[in-house]
Every structure is written in structure tokens, then in C-alpha cells.
Design a protein around this nucleic acid. Structure first.
Lengths: 227, 227
DNA sequence: ACGGTCATTATACTTTGGTATTGGTTAGCC
DNA sequence: GGCTAACCAATACCAAAGTATAATGACCGT
């Protein structure tokens, strides 16, 4: 099945079916894995090389990658380091015939969820895939929420962002005005705009969102030591 | 050097010196590692078995564990699974002469920061140790802050905790009173008590603390989908 | 029985937050 | 030039938050 066909197939079966990508240079491995994974109820796409896989456009569906470490040209580890930071929604499961310890350590430190040596139990791989897909779904929904928040934050003017930052740091409107050199009533106006644009109604939510957006500056001297 | 002597030694040199624990059944390995690590400026304590190490009382100093996987009786992996969840302030570095891939995977999944096979470069181990100690320091300071917050939270009465939870969820005093079946003025009284006992002065801080204490209930219907 | 903590409420008051409306300025764009 | 967006600010007003003081009753341990 070509990637194009696979996409159509998924469209027909519903966009929510998780995809398992398989990258292995051995055709027989690809075919057996494809059958096995499809049997388990996942959509599958196979690739013979890392480059081939990299040409495939990304999806917004829960997915994971079953990857052979010993690939020609671009190795499995190279592929991992190429995509690990971008596609955090794609957990990687390594499989290998001849793995060594340093290779394993590198893969696991880079975030691989599993590292299997052939031969392995079918259920072992399927279990790892199910776990990876589950993780992928969590990462995706988390990322979707973050995108929504970031869009709203992006719609703020620079002044509104300044006001927001100071407000969630615990300053009173009066103090925010002092920091920015503007009147308190102006702070109130900006603050109201922030609440409207962020689509929230309580300061508590604003603080929570600011935390998730990592806007919490070098936190105040909380005097935690003062008992 | 016995553990008791080691403690005295550290007291003399200052309580803040990080400790590297070494557990290996081979006396020559212990001795060479001890010399090497001490040379690098750390306090060292060596143990011939997992049980011996487990008898040692815990410390509140940055530390890490250099652990041989192939120990008699209780193996290195067993020791790891015994302490990994409790002593999160003690990163584990594995060393082994004859490691295999599944063993490595298990160790890394359980949170090991490094897994080295002999022979290895001295600098490799020292680099891992330095990284582990750094991580330990972060975990310890984070834990200290959490303890302070938890102590303060523990000083709240049950009613005050209820009020705090509802307030940080974004409810108005009036609404909190409605939820709890008490008057708004009573909520104000409890709320004031909460702020005093938690030693903070702004709602923003209270929300931040509640988040760190994981008091954020099953979050509200944020209507994130509503564009 | 006594003192302590907790929970509750009330009165009275001040401060802060928030909205609405209006109006002025500046800067960029078609 | 006209339009828009952003920024600033004033008046007026209302809602909410917070403080201080005082009082009542329940419960608990000594």
C-alpha cells in the first residue's frame, strides 16, 4: 500500500484511527510487522528508509514509530535525533537484530519508549505500541490545548501582555500602573481586554494559563525560608 | 572507611559536599572508583552489597549512586526498583562488565541517568556523576520547597482547605459560600486565614501554590473548543 | 469545669476590581 | 485624507475583596 492509499484508507475508516509507522530496510520484516499491527487494529504505513519516511507529511493523529536501528544511509538513531524534538507526539519503539548497550542507552536517553531485540514476543511489541499510541494521544490533546492558549495569547497587544505578566505575578492594579508608568484606570482597561481575549472570567484561570504558557517570570522572593 | 567515619569526615569538610555512593562487589573496583571520585572533589562511600547500602541512613545532601548491575543476592536492578520511587534525589549510574540490551532498557526505563559498560573512559563516568549530582541538587531544593508548602497546607483546618480549593478554582466568595452552605462573610474569614497561614499576600500566589500541591481539581469546562 | 481551637455570623468600613462611556493621541494602511 | 488599532485617561458607578471587632456555639483534652 502506498502512503497515498493509506491516507485515503484512513479517511474512509475515520480520521481518528491511530497510525503505526514502520521503518525497516528488510521487506519481509515490513510485511510481517504490517500484517501483525493491522491485525491489532491500527493503520499502518511502512517505509524502507529514513529518508523515505521523512518525506511523508506529518499527521495530526495519534501515532508512533517502529524503527529499526540498523538502517543504511541514515541510521535509526540519526532519524530519532532528527525528529525527537519536533514530533513529540510520535513515540519511538526501536527494534534491532544486533543491538549493543551504548546504542540502547543513547536511544533511551533520547526518549525512546522501548528497545526490543529480535526475536521478541509479538505481544511485547503490540503492548509497547498500545502504550505508545496512548502516550501520543495525551501529547496531542495537550498540544491542542496549548495551541489554543498560544493563539489567544498571540492576540494580545504588547501592552496587554505586560499587564498580564505583572497581574499574574500578584501585583495590584495600582502597582502595575506604577511599574508601567500609566494610570490605574488604564491598567483596568488593559486587564479587562486580556480577560476578554483569553476568554476567561477569573484571575485564577489567568494565573493557571500564564503558568502553562511559562510566563511566570523569575519568581518573587517568596521568603520560603521564613518560618 | 566505614560509613560512620565518612559521616564524621563530611561534617569536618562541611555538610554541603555532595556524596557519591559506590556499590560493587569487587573490592578492586570499589577502591579504584573511590580514589577516582574523591580526586574529582566528591565525598565517597563504598558498599560491597545492596543490603549493606540499604542499611545506611539517608542523607539530605546532593548525592548519586554508582551501581554495579551484577551484584550477588540483591542485584543492581533490584536495588534500583527498591529505591527509585522513594529516593528521587539519588540518580543512579549503572556500570557493568557484561550488560545486555534488555537489562539496559529496564534500567533506563526505571530512570537510570547512565548505563556504562566496562571498560569506560574515566571522564565519561565523572561527567555522568557531575550531571547526576546537579540533578540531585535540583530535586532536593525542589523537595525542600514542597515540604515547606505542604507544612503550611497541613496547618489549615479542613474548612480552610475547602475554601482554598474553591477559591483557586475561580469561584467568587459568594459562590464558595453557596457551595459550602455558609455565608459569604464566613468565606472571607476563612480565606483570610488561608492567606495568613500560607504566608502569602496575593491570590496569584495561592493559585500557583495550589497547582504545585496538585489541588487543582478536575478542571472546569474551560470551553477551549469555543473559538 | 476550663481553656483552646474551630466554625460561624454580624456590623461597619476601606480598598480593590471591574464595567461603561467618552474622548484624546499616535501610528500605520489603503 | 479617512480608517483602524492601540494606547491612554477621566468620570461615574457597582460589585467584590478584605479588615477589624465582637459574639455565639461545638468539640476536645486536661
Amino acid at each position: 500500500m502506498t502512503p497515498a492509499n493509506a491516507i485515503e484508507g484512513r479517511r474512509g475508516a475515520g480520521l481518528t484511527m491511530p497510525i503505526v509507522f514502520v521503518v525497516d530496510d528488510d521487506i519481509s520484516v515490513r510485511e510481517s510487522l504490517e500484517a501483525m499491527v493491522r491485525q491489532a487494529g491500527f493503520a499502518v504505513e511502512t517505509f524502507a528508509s529514513a529518508r523515505e519516511f521523512l518525506e511523508r507529511p506529518q499527521v495530526q493523529v495519534a501515532n508512533c514509530l517502529v524503527l529499526d536501528v540498523g538502517l543504511p544511509d541514515l541510521s535509526g538513531l540519526d532519524l530519532q535525533s532528527a525528529v525527537a524534538h519536533e514530533r513529540t507526539d510520535m513515540p519511538i519503539i526501536f527494534i534491532t537484530g544486533c543491538g549493543d548497550v551504548p546504542m540502547t542507552v543513547r536511544a533511551m536517553k533520547a526518549g525512546a519508549v522501548e528497545f526490543l531485540t529480535k526475536p521478541f514476543e509479538v505481544e511485547t511489541l503490540l503492548g509497547a505500541i498500545r502504550g505508545a499510541i496512548e502516550r501520543s494521544q495525551k501529547v496531542l490533546s495537550e498540544a491542542a490545548e496549548m495551541r489554543t492558549l498560544q493563539e489567544r495569547y498571540a492576540s494580545l497587544s504588547s501592552r496587554e501582555r505586560e499587564v498580564m505578566t505583572l497581574v499574574v505575578s500578584g501585583l495590584l492594579n495600582k502597582q502595575v500602573g506604577g511599574e508601567l508608568g500609566i494610570a490605574e484606570i488604564t491598567v483596568k482597561a488593559h486587564r479587562g481586554q486580556v480577560m476578554r481575549k483569553m476568554k476567561i472570567r477569573s484571575l485564577a484561570e489567568l494565573v493557571t494559563i500564564a503558568t502553562r504558557l511559562h510566563l511566570t517570570g523569575p519568581s518573587k522572593p517568596t521568603a520560603l525560608g521564613t518560618q
